[in-house]
Design a protein around this nucleic acid. Structure first.
Lengths: 224, 224
DNA sequence: TAATTATGAAAGTATAACTATCATTTAAAA
DNA sequence: TTTTAAATGATAGTTATACTTTCATAATTA
């Protein structure tokens, strides 16, 4: 069984909606595979074109440049995590449990849920951990922000912040904590894998579980 | 009065030590100015060469490529913050005060202390906030890590972690908290400036102070 | 079946990211 | 002071990236 889900991503992200054609889906599918394999800096449209037996020109009809393609993928991820959090906390009334669902969703976004057939969520998550922040650390932030290209991140942050506030209405920094939890998760996953000296993770191959425990501890301690 | 300080940065960062020649210092000085002005992606050695009335070839004699130049600058920053923390906590016995010094050093690395005449610390700090993580989110992390190019970051983290442990010997995640404080500071400074919706900062022009208060709150709460 | 739209194929431009060679300047050693 | 070595500049060249343009062909849709 596969549920068909389509996220409405900001139109400024693409020239032509990749979710609405065969080639578009292939671009998304294989850009995820390629970027996760060779890294964003060495990735380019020519290599992608070769991989999918298409041409550079065709890819440029969907995305203005590789930066916007990355931003598209990152937006998709933001929407996806948001969806996961809402999905898993749907019938939950216990707010503490909801905090745990946030953490779990952020870390085990790693599992290939195959929510959408052409997106390998596990590889996408790898890209987020490795390249995610590059999507907004660009000289064009202000311009891109003004046309709504980070709306999904704001929505996700607002959603997490609302759960934080639900858990502790007196907490002064719900939004900052929300964005910090997001960034910190990816950072600690990155460090655990590549620069373990910057963390306290013991088992590098099972670091997700340790990081989950740590994040839950952080959150509850801060909000107590 | 100007105290002459020279950090010993890993030799793998450069081909020829830029701190030991006039041209080398100019490369550092103006790369900081240029990158902070136009951003890392649009920065290149040709533009830098033009700015300092030199040539691309000459710059390539100091740095293999612009990525390693950035990593050099980031390493310099890690050393510098570490120096600041040690300097300001030198005669302090109160461990709580030491935590505050960490936070203050990370945030107000912003002030141009002119510790070294050819480095504008305020502009360098801007680069760290904006481009810093790009220095280690690269496909070459493992290789670069193996030859010691992140040693300064590890040293800084270890130093902060030791103060954390001094404050609370039972705390389970001193290193993770140390790297998180570093990353979180830069992130929240970035968000406050460019994506304020992701934070709780009220005055965008005086966000440093607010972030400092928040970070101190986080730290003490977590370590209590 | 015609008309529209999407894609492919091929070629071309501008700039980035280097490398190589040799001349000239500057600094250090004799 | 002269000689020598090292550092820098000037110039040119190579390869790759990041696009753009034009036209032909294939696939849809009306």
């Amino acid at each position: 069984m596969s549920v068909q889900i389509k996220f409405n991503l900001n139109e400024g992200l693409y020239i032509k909606n990749p979710q609405e054609s065969k080639l578009g889906k292939k671009i998304i599918q294989f850009s995820i595979i390629l970027i996760s394999e060779i890294g964003f800096e060495t990735f380019n449209f020519k290599k992608l074109a070769t991989k999918i037996n298409s041409t550079e020109a065709s890819i440029y009809r969907y995305f203005e440049n590789k930066h916007l393609l990355l931003l598209y993928l990152v937006n998709w991820y933001w929407e996806w995590v948001n969806y996961l959090i809402n999905f898993y906390s749907m019938n939950i009334t216990n707010t503490e449990k909801k905090l745990e669902i946030i953490v779990h969703s952020l870390i085990f976004a790693t599992e290939n849920n195959s929510l959408v057939e052409f997106i390998d969520e596990s590889k996408l998550h790898k890209i987020i951990v490795f390249e995610g922040t590059k999507a907004y650390h660009t000289i064009e932030v202000d311009k891109e922000n003004s046309i709504g290209l980070f709306k999904s991140y704001k929505k996700l942050t607002a959603n997490i912040a609302s759960i934080i506030k639900e858990y502790n209405p007196d907490f002064k920094y719900p939004k900052s904590l929300a964005s910090t939890v997001f960034e910190m998760t990816n950072n600690q996953l990155f460090f655990a894998k590549y620069l373990p000296n910057l963390t306290d993770v013991k088992k590098p191959n099972n670091s997700e579980k340790e990081i989950e425990i740590m994040l839950n501890f952080y959150l509850k301690k801060l909000l107590s």
